[in-house]
Structures are given as structure tokens and as C-alpha cells.
Amino acid sequence: MTARPDILCIGAVLWDIVGRSPAHLTMGSDVPGRITRLPGGVAMNIAVTLARFGMRPGLLAAIGRDAEGEALVSACGSLGLITDHIYRSDDLPTDRYMAVEGANGLVAAIADAHSLEAAGAKILRPLSDGSLGSSARPWNGPVALDGNLTQALLAEIAGSGLFAAADLRIAPASPGKAERLLPLLPVANATIYVNREEAELICQRTFGDARAAAEGLLARGTARMLVTDGGRSTADGSVDGVLTAEPPPVLVTRVTGAGDAFMAAHIAAETRGESRADALQSALEAAAHHVSGDIGS
């Protein structure tokens, strides 16, 4: 019998195809570099990092039954992730993400997550059919939720009793989709992870730093949030006040997945019982290791 997950990671599980070059890239650049294909997606990246911290993550996602899907499920299992509850579709292809990074950071990315969007609420069935929970006995553990899910599904989750007992952690959405998080902001058991740009889009105003962004989100009725700002100060805001901490200075060699690494490390730290201040520092150190290339992806 499969062990019960310590945490559920809900959202994108796909193939990451990433091209990296040490050169400074501009539009039309044609340079040597490395191209890799690795299991990725917000839910996947968070789950992998959580597994490194000794947790047993379970995935709720949509993966096709095509060859790419079979390979992806196998790769997830080899990384210590629980795949029993993934929605497997016979007619939807496995999703993919493609990014190009240079010495100047992320140049461009395309997310082909149409199958996850098409599957919709089907990925949540284990939370209602008794496999992981039900309306009478909802899941009462932590949940890492992909903020890039459709607006309709995020709104459904915000009002669903299936998540009423969960410690709900919302992963960073891409800036273009940040407003999808609006229904989740006032949910009492939710923690929102965003960067400063996403906070500005949600609040429709400009902030000078992460502390100001956290204060702005609190004014919008957000229960709790963590706001990152690249190499600048990061903030943890709640009704108990706003804490800030500085990320360690490192040489940046990659950026894809940094927010996921930060969030996973923060969840793991608080699960271990670390204080807000210590958990924030642990998360910043994990993100620094990630962007410097010290932790393999």
C-alpha cells in the first residue's frame, strides 16, 4: 500500500526543456549552450525540493498516457514522489515548458499546459472520493497549489470545503496570471507566495520594495503572504506583522524554478517547526543555492 503523502502538490507536472548559455542574449541571438529536458512544472519543482528535505509529496496533476507521459510518471516515481493520484488522460498529450536563459537571466519562455487546463477539476477527484479526503473528512495536511491553474479552478478551490482543513500554500503565478489569485487572498488558511511585480499587478499600484508590497497585500485583505524581489529584501507578512530578510549574495547561473525552491524550502522549514524568521532565512538560503547552481535540478 502506498504511504500517505506528507503534502499534496497540485498543478503542473510536465517536461521542462531549457536552453542555457553563458552569453548575454538579445532578440535573435544564436549562441552555443546546453539544452536539457527534465521533469518540471510548478507542482513538480516544489515536490522535488520537498522530497530533498525528507518529505513524501503526493502529486495531483494531469499527465497523458503518451510515451512522454509514461516517461514522466516513471521519472517522478524515481525521485520519490507519490504518483498514484495523478489524473491520466487517454486523449490529452503530456504538457511541456520551454525556456531560454542567458547570462542576463530568463530571455523567453513558453508554457504549453493546455492539458492541465483541459483536465480542470478532474485532478482534484482524490480529495472528494475518499482516496485522500472527502467532504465529511477533508484533507487536513499541507497543500502546495500551483497559482497558474485556471481562474475558474482557483476560485472553486477558494470556496471549496475540501480545502477547509488544509494548510494551503499558493505557489507563484506568472505575472500575466497574478490576478487569478484574487479569490484566494482572503482565505484564512492560505499563504500566498508572489514576487514584487505580481504583488503590484494584484494591488494595481507600484511598490518600492517587498515590505511595501506585503503591506499593500495586507491592506487588500490577504491573510498571509511572502513577497520576493530578486536579490533584494524579501518579506513575510501576516496579521502579526511584516518580517524582512536579505537573500545571500550569489552568482546567478539560472533562474527557472527559483521561486519554487524558495516556497518548498519555506514549507519544509515551517513543517519542521521553525519560527517565521528562521523559516524565511532557510527559504532564502535554498533559493540562493538553486540560482547559483549548487543544487541540481
Results as ranks from 00 to 15, higher is better:
Asp6Phe: 07
Gly11Phe: 00
Ala12Arg: 08
Arg20Asn: 08
Ser21Phe: 06
Leu25Gln: 09
Leu25Tyr: 07
Leu25Ser: 07
Thr26Trp: 08
Gly28Asp: 15
Pro32Phe: 11
Thr36Glu: 14
Met44Glu: 11
Asn45His: 08
Ala47Ile: 06
Thr49Asp: 12
Arg52Val: 02
Phe53Pro: 00
Gly54Pro: 06
Gly54Asp: 10
Pro57Cys: 05
Gly58Ala: 07
Ala62Val: 07
Ala62Asp: 13
Gly64Val: 04
Arg65Trp: 01
Asp66Thr: 02
Ala67Glu: 14
Ala67Trp: 09
Glu68His: 12
Val73Asn: 08
Val73Lys: 04
Asp84Gln: 15
His85Val: 03
Asp90Val: 02
Leu92His: 09
Ala99Tyr: 00
Glu101Thr: 07
Asn104Ile: 10
Val107Trp: 06
Ile110His: 11
Ala111Arg: 00
Ser115Ala: 14
Glu117Ala: 12
Ser128Thr: 13
Leu132Cys: 05
Pro138Asn: 11
Asn140Asp: 15
Val143Met: 05
Leu145Gln: 10
Asn148Gly: 01
Ala152His: 05
Glu156Tyr: 09
Ala165Glu: 15
Ile170Asp: 02
Glu179Ile: 03
Arg180His: 14
Leu185Phe: 03
Pro186Asn: 08
Val187Ile: 11
Ala188Asn: 11
Asn189Thr: 09
Ala190Glu: 03
Thr191Phe: 03
Val194Glu: 10
Arg196Leu: 14
Ala199Glu: 13
Ile202Tyr: 01
Phe207Asn: 08
Ala210Gln: 08
Gly216Cys: 09
Leu218Thr: 04
Ala219Lys: 13
Met225Val: 15
Val227Glu: 07
Gly230Ile: 06
Ser233Cys: 05
Ala235Thr: 08
Val239Ile: 07
Gly241His: 08
Val242Cys: 10
Val242Phe: 03
Glu246Val: 05
Pro249Val: 13
Val250Gly: 10
Leu251Met: 11
Val255Ile: 13
Gly257Gln: 03
Phe262Ala: 07
His266Asn: 14
His266Met: 14
Ser275Val: 11
Ala279Glu: 04
Ala283Trp: 01
Val291Lys: 08
Gly296Pro: 09
Ser297Glu: 13
